[in-house]
Structure formats: C-alpha cells, structure tokens
C-alpha cells in the first residue's frame, strides 16, 4: 500500500515517540531524531520498518522523534500513524502488533 496523506501519532513526552508518516517516493525512508540514536538507532528504525511491512506499506516517508520509547510503544505509534494516514484508524489491524 502507498501512503497518500500525512498523519501524526505519539508525543514528545519522555518514554514516547512521535511518528509522522507522509507520502514516500517508492520506498520507506526514515528520518530519526533520538538522544540514543547511536546506541539504538538501527533497532528503532528496524521496528518501524517491520511494523510498516506487516501493514503492507511499501512506500512512505517517516519522521520519528524518539524520547526513549520501548519497542512496543514504537510499534503502537507507528501503526496508529499509518492507520490514520490510510484513513482506517477506526478499524486497526491488531494482528500487526
């Protein structure tokens, strides 16, 4: 699936992550801002990619501002942002989590 609209989920509070998803250029690109990017940047990006892949999203631009979120939070925020962008936030595909 392709993302056409922009959507946002999550906050900048401690232990959270803010995810903005918008129209991509044929692939998944991730721009990550995190205090622990050096230590966990690859892991955070791979969790985002897996969550999008599980939702069959192949093209999207993702801006993520991480404030120390756990993987389950990253998955939840990514899924919510993706569902909002696809206009299906009222019927989320829970099995993705």
């Amino acid at each position: 699936m392709e993302i056409e609209n922009t959507a946002l989920a999550g906050t900048l509070e401690s232990s959270d992550i803010q995810i903005m998803i918008s129209k991509g250029d044929g692939k998944i690109t991730i721009e990550l801002e995190s205090d622990v990017k050096k230590e966990f940047g690859d892991e955070i990006e791979s969790v985002i990619k897996q969550t999008l892949a599980a939702s069959n999203i192949e093209s999207a631009k993702v801006k993520a501002v991480d404030k120390g979120a756990l993987n389950c939070v990253i998955r939840a925020r990514t899924l919510t942002a993706a569902n909002r962008a696809l206009g299906i936030a009222d019927k989320p595909s829970w099995e993705v989590l």
Binding site: T6, A7, L8, T11, L12, E13, S14, Q18, M20, S22
Partner: peptide, 20 residues
C-alpha cells in the same frame, strides 16, 4: 518535560486540523 509537553501538544493539535 515542560517544553516537550507544550511543543508536542501544539504540534498534535495542528495535526488534528490537517496542518503538518
């Protein structure tokens, strides 16, 4: 966390109005 709360809330509210 005050600064992050404020910015986060403003950005989320604008997003709800379709301003990204």
């Amino acid at each position: 966390g005050l600064f992050n709360s404020i910015v986060s809330t403003l950005v989320s509210r604008l997003a709800q109005r379709g301003i990204f």
